[in-house]
Each structure stands twice: as structure tokens, then as C-alpha cells.
Design a protein around this nucleic acid. Structure first.
Lengths: 413, 413
DNA sequence: TGCCTTAATTTGCGACTTAAAATTAGTCTA
DNA sequence: TAGACTAATTTTAAGTCGCAAATTAAGGCA
């Protein structure tokens, strides 16, 4: 069915990849433990580790004392082997962060973008300029860059040329590689939907750690989800899977900005919630400057105002039904609720949300799913983007910088 | 991350598996073509094929004439290498079918079950007795059985012991292996949810052929779905994924037999449709004996009766929204609509259903999804069940009969 | 019959993992 | 402080595997 040929060299690559990955996520570990966890023989662990140590990809990290017997040497991924940059292209600004290989933040900055529709041609130079500044700031040479991950709002179609469809900022089928085409940036680029990078960050370092099947449900002004199946982000056939916000919750209900009616987003997205609240107030504006504080206002008001409480209660019900749909369809072991609005609702109402979910989900699946809150917050988009080059390194076991050259060579052949 | 060790032997197994699979699905093929399709070298193809020919798993199937040069020898999977049995355990009866390895039906029969709740203890002996009869009928020795696939209504929890939760027939956490425990059946058992086996049949031999990402949407009295991601059935963490029928379509709407309100099933399941129609008729019964003819009656009535037409139009709308949810969440390349009610609706109303779906789905994803009808019908549950042992053979490249012994040995070690 | 073309097999090689043996690097004991 | 002891690595010696190149097989054609 799948036509992946397998040579004996692929074997090595794969073993290298599993060893590197276990070291990255569960390290530091000794060679002995590595053998146990991966099922590989001590001999193989030894030779492969030696190879990676030769490349300076893996370094020693102290000893474990023993009660008699040779002490185990701890190994870990070398944080300074290379660096990665994560870029969060938002609707109003671009945040860039520089990390070492262990994803420790070394430098960061944010540049505003002219709203509402920043021309793609503008973003390229902005990133290029921001990049050199970032590198200068941390004293990291550009040659040390493993890659640059870019999180964008909108769907990203992976393929020969990566194309971005971001209706939110008016990008239609933009080829990202061209944005940085002539700016002299040579590091490999990895582009992905911002919600998906945020979800990946949550999976690697947040509430998703260790889960093989999970859904990261993100609620901000809009609503999206990242679906993790078997440890990897599910993309579907054209990378637009997980559009949870635009599933029908109330057939023929409120108009949604996607053009359809009754979408979940129109009910539990911050904009939808506040709009409903405004209507309940007889059209009076909510006396706060921005969406976040308006939602806070609503949540506080719910303690004393019946209409506000009703809106919240409804919202919790809708959200529960929406989450139940995720459970019934994907049967994950964990749901992680995030996004700024998701966190605002969740921190105060998680038990209610759980109850509402139970009312709508099938018992069997619900009982086997935990519902937790995000641990990283919306600024995790950049970290998540930065994980992309690291992921490429881990899954291939080889440096994407050299690999891309190889791929080019193969394509020319 | 994943701790699959990779020895040099696994390599062979994997290549054997890919060769066998391509031969099974795309055969007959010559060694030369096999090499091209799998990317393996001619040498490897030759040796691996020789091995499989030695086992009589693969046999020659004629020549391709050539215009000069040695003619290519066509190869195919040996249909008589082994046989498989597919069992469809339904609410009212058990259908059993015997196939050769090419899934050609050799014998079949159906036994009624005492409704409404056949005791599990009853089903075991029924299958055992039916099995010997089936084998006698076709003159196939039991030793030739590669395995027995069983499709059951309800969720099947795969694990050390396979457990079935089938509320429809009152089975709760039944360990299937025990059903046949002392009946002397030695062939490996494979148990799976009936909707999933039907979906698999559709993927192998029906409208799903060739798709990597697809959803088989099944509408009968109830509603279910099989989700295919990357060519394999998606099960989720506890095998209960794809419960499309119990996703909320209308928050707080009609009561569903699952206990929740507003489930899709309550609107587009045959029972739900007919119930709504009955209400529209002021409570008068539909003058037909069973659900299928009642639905036909409704569909025909729609041509001349406004209330009937309204029910159908509503149903199409609901169904469109439900399908749109599948598209938005899973982003498949193909939706296959099936089940007896799904077919009844689809054959007359597919264009309308497509339109309704377009109204609710995101443009980008909808444009890249085709919506087709099932080609096999509801009796495909048994064929689908029979594919399970074949699938085990294809993905492992080795005979599940010997493999299970190996696994036992490993577990004891 | 002999030459040409293409398919399949055989051969020689480099690469890989593993089990077992050897080595190494500590702790413990007297 | 010199063994004795213990347990982690490394080396060594098979045994496999897939591949490229070289052969061999099986026809067509003149």
C-alpha cells in the first residue's frame, strides 16, 4: 500500500531518530536506559550514540553514581548544537523568538504590522530584518540556525511549494518561500498554521505531554483545534483538518463570519459570546476597551447579574456540546482547553464545562477522556513554530540543513 | 518517541509486506513493475518474491508478451493459499461467509438470533457450528483458515483481551475469545465494530478505493462513520472514534436514544426521519410494514405531498450539515455515503446533499472533497470482517497463524 | 543460426544489528 | 593500597539485508 522502500541505511536513520527523540524528550539518560527504552541492543546504542557525539549533537551530562559497578554516563541533546527561530505572524504584529536546541528562549522581540491586512511583501523583509537583530542580540551566528519555523493565521498547504491561505489577513495562496526569497536567509523554512504550532507547543511542553491521542481546543476571538493522533498532528488531505470552530452546533443558528449559520465559533468564540451578551444587555456596549477585558467583565458580572449568568451558563453548555463532539469523533485520551478565552472560561468554570461535556458525550468515551487546561498561553505560537525545525531533526535523525541540500540533489538527479 | 526497535529482520518483513500488499491490491504485476512501484531494486524484488513463491503465497499468473526481450512473468497472490471467514453478528441474526484469499465468496449462510438480546453464550456455539458447516459446504479444511473476522454492533476495545461493548444487543465488556473458548476453533480471531468492517470493505473494494483520507458515513436506523486516515481505520485511544451519529447538530434538540439531545442520529437516522414524518402526519402511522419500505414511502410521497417534501428537505439540510462537520474536522479527500438509508437518500438526492454540504462546509476543504455513494451495500459487513485476517497477513507479511504462536512465545518470555 | 532487447537472477560488497566476550570505571573490603 | 566485585560500555564475530553490476534467461527478428 505505501511505497516507502526500506534500505538498510534507513534502518540506521530510524534508530538514530528514535534514540535522539527519547533523549530529547526524556533525557538526560544513560546509554543503558536508552537501550531499555528503545528496545535496541547496547551495542547499537553505543555506536549510534558515538556517531551523534561525534557530530556534537549529543553530549555527556554527568554521571549516575552506582553502588559498585561502572557508573552510567548520562547523555543529553546538546543545547548549543544549533539554534532555532520561531515566528508568530499575527494579525497585528510579528513576534520572533530565538531558542537553543533545548527550546530555551535566548532572545525575542515583537514588531507591529499595519492592520488590517499586511501585504505579504511587507512581512518578508520584516522577518529578515528581525532575524539578524535577534541573532545579534544573542550573539548567535546565522550558520548555527537549524531552521526557522513560522506560524501563520490560516491554512497552510504543504507541498512542493508551501502555500498559505489566510483569509484573516487577506493572504490568498501565498508561496512563503518567496517572501524571504532575496533576503539572503539561507536557513530552512517551516511554515504551519499558528493554532497547530501552538498545539504542538502544548504537546511538547504543556498539558499535552505524553498523550498519544489528544485534541487541543483553542478558543480566542475565533475557535480552532489541533488534533493529535498517534503522537503527530493530524492534517488531513489538504492540511485544513481540525476546523472545529466551523462545525454546526445549532442548525440554522447565528450567522458566522465563515458564511454558514450555527457554527460553534458563533457561540463560544469570544466575539460570539460578547455579541450575545451585548444583545442580552439590550444593545448597550460593554464598558471595557477590548475583548479580553470585556470577557472578564462578563465573567465577573455573572456572579450578580442574572442575564450575564445566563449567557455564561449557555456558553458552558455550548462548549460542552462542542467538546463532546470532539470526544465522540476523535476519541482522544485528553482534551486540552486553551486560547485566551478558553483559559478565561476554563479557569473559573472547568467543572461546569466537564459536566456539560458529560451530558453530550457518549459515556464510554467520556469516561476515558480527561479535560484539562492549557499550560502555556497564546504566546506559545512562536515556541511551537520553533519546534518545527527541531521536529524535523528528531524524526529524520539528521540535520535539516544538510538534508535539504541532499533533497535538492535528489530532485536534480 | 515511539519505541519500535528496528532490526535488520524487520526490514525484510516490511519489504515483504509492501510487495505483498501492492500485489494484492494492484496485481497481477510482473517483478519488474513491482520494483518500479515499490522503489525496491530488482534484486530485492526477486529474492523476496522467490521466498513468497516458496511459501506458495504468491504464484505466477501468465506472461506479458513483449516486442523483443524476455517477457515479464505476471505474479499474483495465490487465492487458495488460505481462506478466511467473515462473520456479521447483527441484532437479529448471524451471517457467516467463507472466502478465498482474493476475497471471492465460496459459501455463506445466515442464522437467526432470538431478539432482542441474544446472550453472548449463545453466539459462540452458533458461530462454531456455522463454521464447520461453511467449511464442509465449500470443501475447505479448517487448517486452511487464515483467520476469522467478526463484525459486531458496538464498540470493540482492542487490547490484551478484546472486549466488546454492544449496548444494542446488551453485551457489556464481553471477552470475545472466550465465546469460542472451548469449541475447538483454532484459527486466529479478529473482532471489530461492524460499521468499521463495512467501511473497510468499501475502502478495499468499493467507492473508497485508492483514497488515503476518507470518511465512510453510514446511515441506517442509526448513524455511524468509519474514518480512514492515511490509509488505515482511525480508532482513537479506546477504539470508539467515529461516533458521528452522536455529535450535536441542534443543541438541545430531539432526544436521542443515547440519552443526549440534538444528536445527528435523531435527525438523519431512519428512525429519526420516520419519527419526524409521523409527527408531521399528525401521528398517523406510515402504511408500510418495516423501516425500509416506510422510508421508500416517504421518498415517493415527497413528490406530491408538501409535508413529506418538507421532511425530506429538512433531512437533506441536516445531513449536509453533518457531512460538512466531517469535512471541516477531518478534511478527507472523499466522503462515501452508505448504509441502507444513506443509499436510499443518496440515490435520489445526492446533488441536493452536496449542495447542503457546501452551504455548511468551509469552501477550501469542500472544494477538495468528493461525495460519493457506497457501492457495496450493508451486507458488506461480513466481507469487511473477512478482510481483517487478510489485512494482518498483508501488513505483517507473515502468516497470522504462525505469528500468533510467535507472539505467545514472546509474551511468555 | 546469430544478434538484439528486455526480464530476472546471481554475485560481491558495504552497511546494519546483535549476542557474547572483553574492557573499563567505579565501589567495597581487608 | 591492592585486590575482588559489580555493572556499564565497547569490541568482536557472526548473520542479514538491499543494492549495483554482471550474468543468465527468454523471447523476437532477420
Amino acid at each position: 500500500m505505501d511505497s516507502k522502500r526500506a534500505t538498510v541505511r534507513d534502518l540506521r536513520r530510524r534508530n538514530r531518530s528514535t534514540l535522539l527523540s527519547t533523549l530529547f524528550f526524556d533525557g538526560p539518560l544513560s546509554r543503558f536506559e536508552l537501550g531499555q527504552r528503545t528496545g535496541l541492543s547496547a551495542a547499537t546504542v553505543s555506536t549510534v550514540v558515538a556517531e551523534m557525539a561525534e557530530d556534537r549533537l549529543v553530549v555527556e551530562a554527568g554521571l549516575v553514581e552506582s553502588d559498585g559497578g561502572r557508573p552510567r554516563v548520562l547523555l543529553r541533546v546538546n543545547p548549543t548544537y544549533a539554534h532555532v527561530v520561531g515566528v508568530d505572524v499575527g494579525e497585528t504584529g510579528v513576534t520572533m523568538e530565538l531558542f537553543d536546541l533545548a527550546l530555551t528562549r535566548l532572545a525575542a522581540h515583537t514588531r507591529p504590522l499595519p492592520p488590517p491586512r499586511p501585504a505579504p511583501a511587507l512581512v518578508g523583509p520584516l522577518i529578515a530584518a528581525g532575524l539578524t537583530e535577534l541573532l545579534d542580540q544573542a550573539g548567535v551566528p546565522e550558520s548555527s540556525l537549524l531552521g526557522i519555523g513560522i506560524g501563520v493565521p490560516g491554512t497552510v498547504e504543504q507541498g512542493a511549494t508551501v502555500r498559505v491561505h489566510a483569509q484573516a489577513i487577506g493572504w490568498d495562496a501565498i508561496a512563503v518561500a518567496e517572501l524571504l526569497g532575496d533576503s539572503g536567509v539561507t536557513a530552512p523554512l517551516f511554515v504551519e498554521n499558528g493554532a497547530k504550532t501552538q498545539g504542538q507547543a502544548e504537546m511538547w511542553f504543556g498539558a499535552g505531554r505524553g498523550a498519544r491521542h489528544a485534541v487541543i481546543a483553542l478558543i480566542g476571538s475565533g475557535v480552532g483545534a489541533t488534533v493529535i493522533t498517534d503522537g503527530t498532528t493530524y492534517r488531513g488531505s489538504t492540511s485544513s483538518a481540525g476546523e472545529w470552530g466551523h462545525t454546526s452546533l445549532i442548525y440554522g443558528g447565528r450567522a458566522c463570519r465563515c458564511g454558514a449559520f450555527g457554527c460553534l465559533e458563533a457561540y463560544v468564540g469570544a466575539e460570539g459570546i460578547l455579541d450575545r451578551y451585548r444583545k442580552a444587555r439590550g444593545g448597550r456596549a460593554i464598558p471595557r476597551p477590548d475583548e479580553q477585558s470585556q470577557l472578564d467583565f462578563l465573567l465577573t458580572a455573572a456572579d450578580r447579574s442574572a442575564p450575564a449568568a445566563a449567557i455564561i451558563e449557555e456558553t458552558v453548555g455550548y462548549l460542552g456540546a462542542g467538546i463532546a463532539n470532539l470526544i465522540n469523533l476523535f476519541n482522544p485520551e485528553r482534551i486540552v482547553l486553551g486560547g485566551w478565552a478558553g483559559l478565561a472560561l476554563g479557569t473559573r468554570l472547568l467543572p461546569d464545562i466537564r459536566r456539560a461535556t458529560a451530558d453530550h458525550a457518549l459515556r464510554h468515551a467520556y469516561d476515558r477522556t480527561s479535560i484539562d487546561l492549557c499550560r502555556l498561553g497564546p504566546d506559545a505560537v512562536a515556541v511551537g513554530a520553533a519546534t518545527l525545525p527541531v521536529e524535523a531533526l528528531l524524526t529524520s535523525g539528521t540535520d535539516p540543513r544538510t538534508r535539504s541540500r541532499l533533497q535538492d540533489a535528489q530532485q536534480n538527479a
